[in-house]
Design a binder for these strands. Structure first.
Lengths: 196, 196
DNA sequence: GCAAAGGTAGACCGGTCTGTCTACTTTCTA
DNA sequence: TAGAAAGTAGACAGACCGGTCTACCTTTGC
């Protein structure tokens, strides 16, 4: 099981930095110091490896984000924690998630653009899981289901928006701004910041 | 000059649907019905073709968006037009910009992730040009330079966020929601909607 | 009309891709 | 300890990659 995991983590680093199609399996093998037969012992195909890599990243990323949010507190503090985490990610401040090359799930979706493709669907699953996480936090802030949905969507839009701005445009302060805008939206919704 | 343009538009369709690295030049040639020597007569390399394709799409997209915004009016109407345009794009309603496979510039940035790469920079240039467009419109809404910047950034974050939600998650109503959130932010900023 | 420019089909090249397989070694388990 | 499982290096195969080039044809411009 260790070789399999080693392959996954090595492949993730290469795919995340350079893209899936730009990195052939021979480069993964060389970087991992693993024989080709071993790779095919664990994975039926390159796509099976990619799928495993997406699932691995899904786990890492969601654990990390959840931990950062939990550490910041509940309700609005958790959301502030989310944007602080993104800010640290963009600015290479959190060893647990560095480096930043954009969102792996957005990047992989770009390369597997057909929504019916299993790998694209894994990326969508990841986004859905994050959405559920955020909606759960929003339920700590307001009892109104409609507001919950609306503001959870706001969080997600701002989250994805700032990731794209950071990656494509190199805007390293995008997360700070996104966080401020969320605060404004919460204020507009009559959900003023909780007292310390 | 016609063959060159034909190559660019053909390559755009293939690259936009399947990704740049997933489509080799031989597939572009076959789809375009053009000889390889002709391609290399017009472009030094595949990357030169990709760059030309990015520039072509930049032109199309910005012209389209600008037209849609202008058609909707000025100030807040222009911004409403921007999100209506995105909504039509996601929902395949505007023949001028169909089909929707996500944002070409986000997708290409994913495949050319190094910020120093010329192709990545072309994508960033595109985003900067859109930002300038939006900032110009925001100047019609408020004289305060700080508010202009802040709210223009809000538009951009929501724009990128809803494109990602639409593409990765298949959320076809993301643009409508993003537009509503912008309205809320304008309200929060004391920039109430202009009377009809 | 002629030469330059643009274009055709496609062979060729060295390289890389993904996946299969040989022969052998090492590790693990009963 | 023996056999199964996991792993090694790497050859092999067909396919495709991006780019170069031959021989020739068509179009354009002067």
């Amino acid at each position: 099981m260790d070789k399999r995991q080693h392959l996954v983590t090595t492949a993730f680093e290469l795919f995340y930095r350079e893209g899936v199609h730009a990195v052939g399996i021979n480069r993964v093998l060389e970087a991992a110091g693993v024989a080709k037969k071993t790779l095919y012992h664990h994975f039926d195909s390159k796509e099976a490896l990619v799928a495993a890599v997406v699932e691995y990243r899904d786990g890492c990323y969601r654990d990390w984000l959840l931990a950062r949010m939990a550490r910041a507190g509940t309700g609005q503090r958790a959301l502030a924690g989310l944007f602080a985490a993104l800010d640290d990610w963009f600015n290479d401040r959190d060893p647990a998630i560095r480096p930043f090359h954009g969102c792996f799930f957005i990047n992989v979706s770009a390369e597997y653009g057909d929504p019916a493709h299993p790998i694209h669907q894994l990326c969508a699953d990841h986004k859905r899981a994050i959405a559920a996480q955020v909606t759960g936090v929003m339920a700590q802030i307001t009892d109104d289901p409609e507001q919950q949905q609306r503001l959870a969507q706001a969080v997600l839009l701002l989250k994805e928006g700032c990731i794209v701005q950071a990656h494509v445009c190199g805007d390293r302060s995008a997360a700070v701004r996104a966080g401020e805008l969320l605060t404004a939206l919460l204020r507009e919704a009559g959900l003023a910041a909780e007292p310390a």
